[in-house]
Amino acid sequence: MALTEQGAPAGRPDRPHVFWTMRRRQLLWVWGFLAVPVLFYGVIRFYPTGHAFWLSLTDWDLMSDPSFIGLDNYTRLFADPQFGRVFRNTFAYLIMGTPISLILSFIIAYALDRVRFGHTFLRALYFLPFITTASAMAWVWRWFYQPAPIGVINDFLSGFGIPQMAFLNSTTWALPSIMVTAIWAGLGFQIIIFMAGLRAIPTTYYEAARIDGLGEWAILRRITLPLLKPTTVFLVVFSSIGFLRIFDQVYNMTTNDPGGPLGSTKPLVLMIYQTAFSSYQMGYAAAQTVVLFTILLVVSLLQLWILRERT
């Protein structure tokens, strides 16, 4: 639809130089439609982004006026032993969480896709956790992970005489325990998306492959997986961002020792929250958010680049 070709309103051929041409009128509509959104994105997205960058260069406790300190917050951050730990934790969530949840959800989606009997029922079982509230379920899991005699899992284990696992009370296992909760909560979504991706593959491909005499495994490897790639790329990026920004579960599962024993579960977002809203070091917290932004950007771009279409 090219607006340029429509000079004047159809009904008025005798007045070619009218000011309110069709095009001008449409432009008015366009910017009328966009006025509030443009204002919104400017004030609620772009201005705060710039503000966060600026704050990261200041020392500010909310009480006195902010003072400009250059890159001091960043130097402090990279020298902060807590940040080292938090940085490793954040990537531990990503590096374990994303592959495990993707592989699990693909296997389940692949199997579920071939099941007819009770399909809707089975799918509902897997999808239900996704629509629960993370903060509520974090408490349920926290209870599951308790040591005997109250912890559900440990009680189950000790019923078989198996020594209990420390889970949240261990610096080694606390992070994986919380990660399992996050995987559990997000699995349903990934399964559904994978199933949608599987459905989108035209059946003719499979038929052709079968005529060529390919076995199940070969079909999976040579047809299904390659054709599923856009879905996989989307899920890799989506789930990575989710794990890098993990907060709800950690916050709720470790309220009496925030971030787990010796900070062993503390992700970057919790550190940001504590720095900004318990210690009121706004500048320092802003610098941490800039680092988070950079991490997210680099990880997403890197993934898109690695998984790009090779032609």
Binding site: L34, P37, V38, Y41, I44, R45, F46, Y47, P48, T49, H51, A52, L55, I241, R245, V269, I272, A276, M282, A285, A286, T289, V290, L292, F293, L296, L297, S300
Partner: peptide, 23 residues
């Protein structure tokens, strides 16, 4: 306009909360 709006997908909420809070 399209690119500007799309680019905000890259900005994590966590980066905006402090400015939002001050606002």
């Amino acid at each position: 306009v399209f690119l500007a709006i799309l680019s905000t997908l890259m900005i994590p909420t966590e980066m905006l909360v402090i400015p939002w809070y001050l606002m």
